[in-house]
Simulated assay, not measured.
Amino acid sequence: MKAIILNEPGQFKVNELMPPSDQLEAGEALVKVHRIGICGTDLHAYSGKQPFFTYPRILGHELGVEVLKVGKGVENVKVGDKCSVEPYFNKREDHAVQRGFTNCGENISVFGVHEDGGMREYFRIPAKYLHTSKILSYDQLALVETLSIGCHAVNRAKVTGEDTVAVIGAGPIGMGACQFAMAAGARTVMMDINQNRLDFCQKHIGVDGTVRVAEVEVTEASLRAQFDGNLPTVVIDATGNKHSMSNTLTFTAAAGRIVFVGLFPGDFSFHDPFFHKKELTIMASRNSLPSDFEQIINMIENRQIDTTPWITHKIVFTDIANHFDSWLKPETGVIKAMLTLS
């Protein structure tokens, strides 16, 4: 079978590998890959900037797959099912996992990051990580994991219709967070330095407002103007930029909540008296939960979320080396690139 291997930063190679055995263990499924979404993790790995990462590696964890065979005891999927893949594997039931936090177990292994992922034609997987839909296309199923990151951040913040929300960072994760905050009934504003991204959010996602950030600064007044003179009760930062993350304390209303969904691979600081004065809550959001996957599939099926605008670039997966460099450039206009295998 064909597989794409990232041998080192900037170097993809299409290899021929032995296909996985179809002699499945109990609880396993053999799947065929149809779609692979390209995410920020893949871009960072290609650029040599992804923490907790080793080379060589088969990337790919935003997947739309078809079930070819199931092992003994598998009941949640059957042969022929179209599925999204939950890529957060917990091979040990540590304390966090026992408490239901499968997204951040001490021994978590993320498919396509800590172990080889889905940029190949076939693979075996514990069937419990497959989420099926009788309605969604492979394109839509490959977007579920992308959407789940923003969905989980919104769920972490417990956003309701009484909240006002500012999302910082108009990449796919921030756009997803906007969609779920809006679905919860909150007035939602997107902030970014890229006007084209803001225009996309206004046109295709229908955000309630946008604020363009000049470099890493934005005036408090420009944000208050979006919320009738008040600051938002929830700020979700999807930038992974330490200056932006520090500024969230200025942008959040008293007794508000801050969610860091973007990852900065280092230290950042904030003014502690200001943090206490507002009695803020700061939380991290990592990966997502099985319930997030089920929520998203249900919402797409019921047309509460439109995924049509998301995929802006699509190529045959063996042609990745000819296009990946361009996807690192903002002027390319990539929102979501998708690799196809059929």
Rank of each mutant, 00 (worst) to 15 (best):
K2N: 13
I4E: 00
I4K: 04
L6W: 06
N7V: 15
F12K: 07
E16V: 12
M18V: 10
P19L: 04
P20L: 13
D22P: 10
Q23R: 12
A26S: 12
A29L: 08
K32N: 10
T41H: 02
D42M: 02
Y46S: 03
Y46R: 06
Y55H: 07
L59H: 10
L59D: 00
L59R: 11
L63E: 02
L63N: 03
V65T: 05
V65P: 07
E66L: 03
E66R: 08
G71A: 07
G73E: 13
K78M: 14
G80A: 06
K82I: 12
S84L: 04
S84I: 01
V85H: 11
F89C: 00
N90C: 06
D94C: 02
D94M: 08
Q98G: 14
T102K: 02
S109K: 15
S109N: 15
M119G: 03
Y122I: 10
F123E: 00
P126Y: 03
Q140S: 10
V144P: 05
T146I: 13
L147A: 07
S148I: 00
I149S: 09
C151W: 11
A157R: 05
K158A: 14
E162G: 09
V165G: 01
A170F: 01
P172S: 13
I173L: 06
G174K: 00
A184E: 12
A186K: 05
N196H: 09
F200C: 05
H204C: 08
V211S: 06
V218M: 15
T219Y: 11
A221W: 11
S222K: 11
N230K: 10
P232Y: 02
P232Q: 03
V235L: 04
S246I: 11
L263N: 07
H271N: 11
H271P: 01
F274T: 14
H276P: 03
H276E: 11
E279Y: 05
S285W: 05
Q295L: 15
I297N: 03
N298L: 13
I305F: 05
F317P: 00
T318M: 05
D319K: 10
D319G: 04
F324C: 00
K329Q: 13
E331D: 04
T332C: 06
T332N: 06
G333I: 08
G333H: 14
G333S: 07
A337W: 07
